[in-house]
């Protein structure tokens, strides 16, 4: 998977993008967040409150129950504040 982080998720994790193979036992976005949170440090801080984290898979807004494939582009960002 190609993972992307925006706004304060990028600042807290210290990462803008990374390649991460889909691990065994990771089926949904919620599973992936659990895996990333387990890294600790800035990742644990960024995902501490998943109610304020929004997710897009292949550039479409999705919920935490969305299924993942190894070829997906998965983006994490705060609620949108444009316009």
């Amino acid at each position: 998977m190609n993972l992307l982080y925006f706004a304060w998720l990028k600042e807290k994790t210290g990462v803008a993008k990374e390649d991460l193979p889909l691990a065994d036992g990771v089926a949904t976005v919620a599973d992936l967040i659990e895996q990333l949170t387990a890294r600790g440090g800035g990742f644990a801080e960024a995902f501490a409150d998943s109610s304020i984290v929004r997710v897009a898979v292949n550039q479409e807004h999705v919920g935490l129950d969305a299924k993942l494939n190894d070829s997906d582009e998965v983006a994490f960002f705060p609620p949108i504040t444009g316009g």
Binding site: A7, I80, T81, G82, G83
Partner: peptide, 11 residues
């Protein structure tokens, strides 16, 4: 709609 769907973030 763009204020809630288009991925922009203000700092």
């Amino acid at each position: 709609w763009l204020k809630t769907k288009a991925p922009f973030w203000k700092k």
